[in-house]
Computed example of a mutant assay.
Amino acid sequence: MAKPTYDFAIVGAGIAGSACAYYLARAGRTCLLIEADEVASGASGFSAGLITPPIGLRLQPPMRELMLAAFDLHQELPETLGNGSGSGYELRHGGSVLVATEEAAAPALRSLLDDPVPRRRGARWLDPEQVGEVCPWIDQPQAGGIYEPSAGNLDPDRLTHAFCAAAQRAGARLAIDSVVSLEESGPGFRLRGSRDEYRADQVLLAAGPWTGTLAGQLGFKDSVNPLKGQILRLRLPPPHSAVGFSCPDGSYLAPRPDGQVWIGTTEESVGFDRATTDAARDLILARARRLCARIDQGEVIAQTACLRPVSRDGIPLIGPVPGIRGAWICTGHGRTGMLLGPVSARELVNLILERETALAMAPFDPARLGAASAPSGLETGESQ
């Protein structure tokens, strides 16, 4: 019996790939979602799941518009995906404080509120004595901060599974297999996995940092690289609060609904090494300790590491593979994958189906990194 040819083969069942499968299947396209390990087995299952509104004049287009649209979409997703998904997915609005850890940093941080957008969403400045009242986790001296009441967090694993389940209800098929080769074949594409072979009219690469390997087989080389991030999961003594905090250096404390507290993170360019390290553990604890002395009374339950996909210029890759008709990419979101993945998928599907997009997509076009060269035709081993 001849193998079916799908409209789309989507490689990677993280947040971007699962959301792409959902939007394409809802549009009536036949989709095969291929994942090497398990749904949300990469960064989409281990990120902190922070859904924070973009703030400040320093965030320039195109990322500002993408992040604003992403935050707004997340407010709709619990109703869209939560009912009947069985995932238990929810977006928890606890609020967060962006803290100035030193007096010298306070004026620049406070100036971010010159932007009217965060003010319309309820963001306001807190003087030092107010910070601990709003966020009881903070018990050490600081210089004030911006309170963002609309900030929230979610379980990244549950959101990704909710998208995948919704895609399957709409007709998408999930295959657990490692794609080891990808090539143009006739008017479409042939993907050979370690278990089976697949054919599709079009292919969409959303395999996180492994996307670069697959895109390279189509001649689009060095498009995305891994950036390791480590997180600690703790239990801390009271008082507890749903309000978390973050710092301009990228460190944060995020309370979870189950009573755990997640603190992070690191940014490590170490290739595809996913091992946790004592050095990262000590760094994360030291950063959190600046504002929360109770960190030393906490119990470390787990230390996790994941690989985030980062493009060469730090801007997500959302669009066609240069020079390859029918091949698409959705990756490169770095530390903001859970925030940006769903809206990137929605807009990419609009682009693919030649619908009007809500955002200008030209700044995210992978062609900005250069045209694809001739495919090598070489197999590179397990990729996703």
Results as ranks from 00 to 15, higher is better:
A2V: 14
A2E: 13
D7A: 13
A9K: 01
S18Y: 02
Y23K: 03
Y23G: 10
L24K: 00
T30N: 07
C31F: 04
G45D: 04
T52V: 13
G56H: 08
P61K: 15
E65H: 08
M67S: 13
L73I: 06
Q75P: 06
E76Q: 14
L77Y: 03
L77A: 04
E79C: 07
T80F: 07
L81W: 01
N83S: 13
S85Q: 07
S87Q: 09
S87P: 04
E90P: 02
L91C: 00
G95Y: 04
E103N: 10
E103H: 12
A106C: 06
D115E: 10
V117I: 15
R119M: 06
R124S: 14
W125T: 15
Q140F: 02
Q140D: 03
G144E: 12
Y147D: 04
E148P: 00
P149A: 07
G152R: 04
R158Y: 00
A165E: 15
A170M: 08
L174H: 05
A175P: 08
V179I: 13
V179R: 01
L182T: 08
L182R: 02
E183A: 11
R195N: 12
D201G: 14
L204S: 12
P209Y: 10
Q217L: 07
F220T: 09
F220C: 04
F220G: 07
L234K: 06
L236K: 05
A242F: 05
L253V: 10
R256V: 10
G264D: 05
S269V: 15
R274S: 14
R274L: 09
A275N: 08
L283Y: 10
I284W: 02
R287G: 03
A288Y: 07
D296R: 12
Q297R: 11
I301K: 14
Q303V: 09
C306I: 03
I318R: 05
I318H: 05
G319V: 00
I329M: 11
T331R: 01
G334V: 02
G337C: 09
M338S: 12
L340S: 07
P342E: 09
V343A: 08
S344K: 01
R346P: 03
V349E: 05
N350T: 07
L351F: 11
L351V: 08
I352S: 03
T357H: 05
F364E: 15
F364L: 15
G370K: 05
A371E: 15
A374D: 05
S376C: 04
